[in-house]
Design a protein around this nucleic acid. Sequence first.
DNA 1: TTGTAGGCGTTATCAG
DNA 2: CTGATAACGCCTACAA
Lengths: 336, 336
Amino acid sequence: MRKNIVTVAKELNLAPSTVSKVLNNNGKVSQKTRDRVMAYVKEVGYFQDASARILKSKRSYTLGILFSDISLVGLEHPFFSSILQSFKNYVEKEAYEIIFVVSKVGEREMSYLEWCLTKKVDGVLLVSGNLNNPYIKELVASDIPCVSTDFIMPNLTTIISDNQQGIDLSVAYAKSLKRSKIDMIAGPSTSIAFQLRMDRFHEVMNKSKNPYFVIEAKGFGYQSGYDAAIRLLEQATRTPEYVIVGSDDLAFGAIRGFESKGFKVPDDISVIGFDDINFARIYSPALSTIRQDKKAIGEMAALKLIQMIQEKEPKKTEVIKIPVTIIERASTKIKN
Amino acid sequence: MRKNIVTVAKELNLAPSTVSKVLNNNGKVSQKTRDRVMAYVKEVGYFQDASARILKSKRSYTLGILFSDISLVGLEHPFFSSILQSFKNYVEKEAYEIIFVVSKVGEREMSYLEWCLTKKVDGVLLVSGNLNNPYIKELVASDIPCVSTDFIMPNLTTIISDNQQGIDLSVAYAKSLKRSKIDMIAGPSTSIAFQLRMDRFHEVMNKSKNPYFVIEAKGFGYQSGYDAAIRLLEQATRTPEYVIVGSDDLAFGAIRGFESKGFKVPDDISVIGFDDINFARIYSPALSTIRQDKKAIGEMAALKLIQMIQEKEPKKTEVIKIPVTIIERASTKIKN
DNA sequence: TTGTAGGCGTTATCAG
DNA sequence: CTGATAACGCCTACAA
């Protein structure tokens, strides 16, 4: 039979409350008693029961992770899994645990908010999702602290790469290479990050008089990039010299798409991606790209979320931009 | 103020226990009462408190996921994250949730077992880990149902690809290509899967009189594969025609290693990997490989674990092998 | 500084 | 089939 706090207290000739205070490091307890309790607890291997503590204290020290079902990417996407990994590392240092938020318990559907209340999660990280999902809106509107690494909404704190800076870097780099026929293959604008990148590209390009073209890929993967490259070649009234692609995944396909039409990358067309996933440096040609600092994003999200929980800060609309860096590899370099 | 079961019962002129029975679908309750309760609960938006339920019922309907810290790969490895994703999908259909097992709560270290008892997790999936970790041994030896997708231990149910079959397929394929100088670049034998693949290779190759060579890579990534390829060329007394590599990650590097010494893949040397991660088909040359059925592994692990929990089956040593398939791509094909 | 007592929301047992 | 009641293990006032 597992010992509980009452038994332990009895065996030490103390009151349960005293033991509780020692265990939770609050209230006034003499050092001597404290030591005695700690030693005994270790000796007999007593440990607290999480559910009883949660029930009584009304908080769980658990953070929910939410991947909304609608976007089909989840754990398997290296970008999100990296963010999650660094988030996890950070919060565990702060004695929080993480659990996945679900919207179905067996047969029974429930809203995200309902689930979070059921579990008393202290806060939620919205990793990826569809901002039109009413359950997400409801959750963000609730009292539960939320942080997102994917989308921007009123009353939500968002940690996101500085996408504008990324596009600026890409364009500036084109100029340094003396390539002025610059086009873009954008990712589907259902994702806010893709949208931001495309918007900035328009903004920057409109400042010069050069014509430019933008093609929106129809999906997220290799094939979508491949197809978009071919569409770009068809639609642009002159051959591009430098193509900015909304993500590395798309860029891999785009390169092959250009090649399939007889263009050499980078000799004829330089291609630069966005993300710097692991494979970018292994690809042939190695892919130049804008590196997102996934570790920083995950850590900042953790820090912010914990802060909101502990300081009981009211929710506010906030967008924290994490700087990106340009990584120059073979896919843009012009041989002299 | 949130409603609890007592309030709800009172408002319906029922006893809390009756409401509880309805909610949990057990015990005898008339259909009429059941309907009345369900309707009312939906109407007023009542939902259970998980912690109270766990406290009382002594189980949490939560499954722990354990990545042992020692192997540094975690969520970020596409192989493990795929397994986890399919495991998650499956268990959620069965109304289980998943949570990550940790060994540190803030400052306080605790054993995995202790943590699991604290949280009352119903079972644990050991995704990857070091089988020498004493905490893992302790957990596997405990009463908590465990399933692993990575290592084999006494009293543990393991779901793992049929690594032997994979090697057999690779070797047979070499023969069909009329390539008989077959070598292997094995992954570090700290991982059981790599060990199994290497052992089988020795076994198969020893049956023929042909000399063969095996090099063990020093790590898991591209660079380790690259280095191993070069070491292989140095140590083998004849140039290989067909090289089986322990993982796709290593194979990517190995191909470039061979190329760096002037060999063409596949014309001079065919290379075949193991895993079929997403990137394999995008690589140049597209990588032939042995596909592990990650979805099947995750689902089988889920099925087995839930079965052990629900049937209260005693633990036993069991290894369930999931068939693999060979995927032929450009890295092995010989032009005629 | 320590002890007492009540209650958190649920479920299980047993009686009606 | 339904109801009363006693736990589950812990925390938090407040009293001593």
